[in-house]
C-alpha cells in the first residue's frame, strides 16, 4: 500500500462524504424543525438518483443540471407530503411517526424494484473518467464537481436559514414552537416548507450520487441508515454537523474498504455510531442534550 494510494482513497472518501453529507443535511433539517424522523430518507435519495438517470438517458440532461430540476420536484413532493400526510402525525408518539415512514419506505423501495428491476444502472458522462494528477495522486474530476455542488447547495441552505425572513421564521419554529405560534407564524406552512427543503437536499444529493455510483433500489435502506449514522455522528439538528459527519463517514468507509474489505465498510460506520452514542450522544457538533 503506497502513500499515494492512501491519499487517493482519503481524498475520494472526503469528496463522496460531502455528497453523503448533503443527503444527511436534508434529514437533519427535517428532524431539527419538524421533529419527525424521515425514515424514508435513503429511499428519496435513490429516487433522486433514478430521476437524474432517467433525465440523462431520455433527454441527455447532465446530472449537474438535472440536480436543480430534481431538487425543485422534490421540494414540491416534500411540501405536500408534510401538508397532507405527516402533519397528522406531528403530535403522535414517536413509534407511530416511525411506522408511517417505514411504510412509505417499503412502498418506495419495492415500487422502484417493480419499475426498474434489481439491475444496477449508471450514467456515462463524457468526463466520467477524467482526472487530475496532483503530484502522484489521482483525483476524479466528477467527484470534485459533485463535492463542490454539494457544498454549493449546503451553502445556499445556510444562507437561506440565516438571511431570509422565511429561514428566520423556520428557525423560530425549531427553537420555540409555542412562541412561534403566539407571534402569528403559520407553523403548518413553515413545516411544509421545511420538509420540502429537506427533500430538495436529498434530491440534489441523489442527482450528484448517480455521477459517482451505480444505482439499484436495494441501495435505499442502506442510504437511510447511512444518513442516520452521519446525522447522529455530526449531531442531530446541526447543519454543519451533517457535513462534518458526512466527511468522517466518507473517509472512514473509504479507508475501511481499502484496509479491510469493501463489503465490511458499513461495519466501521456502525462502530463509529456506537462509540459516538456512548461517549458523545449529542454528536460532534450538537449542543448538549436539551
Amino acid at each position: 500500500m503506497t502513500l499515494s494510494l492512501v491519499l487517493e482513497v482519503l481524498i475520494q472518501g472526503m469528496l463522496t462524504g460531502l455528497v453523503y453529507g448533503l443527503m444527511a443535511l436534508g434529514l437533519s433539517v427535517i428532524f431539527g424543525v419538524v421533529r419527525v424522523v424521515n425514515f424514508a430518507h435513503g429511499e428519496f435519495a435513490v429516487v433522486g438518483m433514478y430521476a437524474a438517470f432517467l433525465l440523462f438517458a431520455a433527454l441527455k440532461i447532465d446530472p449537474f443540471v438535472a440536480m436543480g430540476l430534481v431538487a425543485a420536484a422534490f421540494f414540491v413532493v416534500g411540501y405536500f407530503l408534510q401538508r397532507v400526510v405527516v402533519t397528522h402525525f406531528i403530535r403522535r408518539p414517536d413509534h407511530e411517526q416511525f411506522i408511517l415512514l417505514v411504510g412509505l419506505a417499503i412502498v418506495m423501495v419495492n415500487g422502484m424494484l417493480m419499475i426498474f428491476g434489481p439491475d444496477a444502472r449508471h450514467v456515462e458522462l463524457s468526463y466520467s473518467y477524467d482526472s487530475w494528477m496532483l503530484g502522484p495522486v489521482l483525483i476524479d474530476k466528477v467527484r470534485v464537481f459533485a463535492a463542490l455542488a454539494a457544498l454549493g447547495v449546503a451553502g445556499a441552505l445556510f444562507a437561506f436559514f440565516r438571511y431570509t425572513q422565511t429561514g428566520l421564521a423556520i428557525r423560530a419554529c425549531a427553537d420555540n414552537l409555542t412562541g412561534a405560534g403566539v407571534v402569528g407564524l403559520d407553523v403548518d406552512r413553515l413545516y411544509a416548507l421545511t420538509f420540502g427543503v429537506g427533500l430538495a437536499c436529498v434530491g440534489a444529493a441523489g442527482a450528484l450520487l448517480i455521477c459517482v455510483s451505480d444505482v439499484t433500489p436495494m441501495l435505499a435502506p442502506s442510504f437511510t441508515l447511512l444518513a442516520f449514522t452521519i446525522v447522529i455522528i455530526g449531531g442531530l439538528g446541526s447543519m454543519g454537523g451533517a457535513l462534518l459527519g458526512g466527511l468522517v463517514i466518507g473517509v472512514a468507509e473509504a479507508l475501511a474498504s481499502l484496509v479491510i474489505a469493501p463489503s465490511m465498510k458499513s461495519m466501521v460506520s456502525f462502530a463509529l455510531l456506537v462509540v459516538i452514542l456512548a461517549f458523545r450522544p449529542q454528536g460532534l457538533m450538537g449542543k448538549r442534550a436539551a
Binding site: V85, H88, E96, I99, L100, V102, G103, L104, A105, I106, V107, M108, V109, N110, G111, L113, M114
Partner: peptide
C-alpha cells in the same frame, strides 16, 4: 414480491393513520 411489499407498506401506512 415487490407488489406484495408495496401492498404491505400501504397497509402499514393506512393502519397507523
Amino acid at each position: 414480491p415487490g407488489a406484495k411489499a408495496v401492498f404491505f407498506g400501504l397497509a402499514l401506512m393506512i393502519i397507523i393513520f
